[in-house]
Nucleic acid binder design. Sequence first.
DNA 1: CTGAAAGCGCTTACAG
DNA 2: CTGAAAGCGCTTACAG
Lengths: 356, 356
Amino acid sequence: MQPDAAPRPTLADVAARAGVSQSTASLAFSGSGPVSDATKERVLAAASELGYAGPDPRARSLRRGRSGIVGVVLEERVRAAFLDPVKIQMLDGISEGIAPLGAGLLLLTDTGVAGESAVSIESAPVDAVVLIGCSPRLAVSIEALRRRGIPAVAIEGDTGEDLPEISIDNLQATRRGAEYLRQLGHTDVAIVTLPVDAARTRGPLTDELLRSSTAATASQRLAGAREIFPEATGRSAGASSIEEGLEAARALLADPANRPTAIIAQSDLLAAGVIQAAEELGMHVPGDLSVLGFDGIRVDGLQHDLTTLAQPSVAKGRAAGEAVVQMLSGEPPESRCFTSTLHVGDTTAPPRTPAG
Amino acid sequence: MQPDAAPRPTLADVAARAGVSQSTASLAFSGSGPVSDATKERVLAAASELGYAGPDPRARSLRRGRSGIVGVVLEERVRAAFLDPVKIQMLDGISEGIAPLGAGLLLLTDTGVAGESAVSIESAPVDAVVLIGCSPRLAVSIEALRRRGIPAVAIEGDTGEDLPEISIDNLQATRRGAEYLRQLGHTDVAIVTLPVDAARTRGPLTDELLRSSTAATASQRLAGAREIFPEATGRSAGASSIEEGLEAARALLADPANRPTAIIAQSDLLAAGVIQAAEELGMHVPGDLSVLGFDGIRVDGLQHDLTTLAQPSVAKGRAAGEAVVQMLSGEPPESRCFTSTLHVGDTTAPPRTPAG
DNA sequence: CTGAAAGCGCTTACAG
DNA sequence: CTGAAAGCGCTTACAG
């Protein structure tokens, strides 16, 4: 276990011990070339005698020009990113998508302190990269990757570049959900958005706040809702979490005389918080308040079947992984835009008629 | 972006263009050697003219004998592992701990299909590895790493080897929590455990099930509880989740005539589920039922201040990262066992006296 | 402060 | 089926 113990045997040592050339020994390990069974056996035996654990991946990757590693660039620190179940599902999809490569996933962050890290976006030994989520730094990262000649694909990136991009129909999906609420008879609808600006401001959805918006996803979903309910306002949350949904909804429902009959939440976690706030106030969902989510995740512990716009998060990740595989085999990668589907659960119903 | 576009310039090209030797060019990039500012500038200018993005990390790592990558071995697929907030915190701690290395984190799984992956535990270009959680395959992984001469540290691993290990006082902590319940006056206590066997059997905590236990953590925490309540029984959950806690508690509380006055849950997520089940049944926590958790995470959306055994998950990760740094600098790494602290929240109280 | 040389450990055409 | 040779792109003693 000491890093500076006895020198590790190399392939040359193994070859010498087996009495074959180094090329033959190499072939015996890679399994691809034509080697007689007897020779192969001899090489493997020599290896095990010497305690040789297989070709050094560093040398192999230099020679082959491939490291077998795909980078995943998160816009925030590991902990923050993985609090979002949608991101975890995407990560899982990515690992499915790149499975044919047998590649590993290297976590990278976008935090800008490039020189600090031996391994950063500008220097990581990766064959390709998947960028998750947009960030102010995205353009810088993309430029660095372009210079290095490393293929990249963005999920919900709004890259403005020629990168392939994997996205969903944020606007249309939300419009569809809003349309469903209108058909149920709702007219007084409030919205709880994902963070809209870089500061993740928590508060009323003012025009000023919206002008400083840097989050494409939140803006698109809001626009979709407003195509049906042009006057709809609400609150922006500081994160996608139950807690934030709870706080936002407490504010929206504070005045019993002036409550919306439905709330559109831009994520399922926010929706779960909204439901919790409503029930806290003695309201029934969906009797007194309809709640619409977005994502289609299973919220652990939520006892409702949430009405939501189910987005194919795993498929998005998988598509990103597949795009990586395509690019690495020289094929032109495809951008893809997935469709979310309205799942009607038990959290939406017609509004109670006033005094009826 | 095409992988087979024009050949990337190399350091030799840059040196030629700048009219210096390759060694000087290398020094100009690494920043460590003595190079005159003028020369350095000339090299950097040549690099930018050629579109050279810096030294190739593959070549650098072969030459240096270090890849700058630390592997994290999860016992299950990415999605499953990251559903557990404790693991995410540990991951975050690891990245803090290895920060001095500037290294990246490579996700590896323990799933055994070694030959399938170009990059697996037996072949990943990692300088060191952190093993998270125990698994039946742990021994195999450790042996592979030992052969490769790659330093490793295990978190809650029970490795039985000479690996440094980062753990917590599972037994003593639980005993302390149980002792607190006893002091409050509880005598009828049930337990909801983490999965105890490889199959993650969900059901009553029978002796037979416990005999097939492979999970050290669950066993240790159970043992701690039984030091105070030797007769205590309960149910094993199929995972650490609110949903599983809910199901287990529904079973434990099914018979109104025969309910425990307190439940010890082996994780906070399980505890949150227990609370939910109790409230569903119209019971009050802590009035009708005391609930003790384990972990000290903030459960998103939980409106109680959970009484729990707060373990320092981030610190555990950080300690593992620090052990990696130590091993890589040739120092003997330290095993560490952290102490969990009893956080008394609002989910525990004396039992209601019968008919009082 | 700069340069010439060796070599990290492998894989891959190319001959035989 | 096997071997001799080149070279992937760098960094690092070693001279000067």
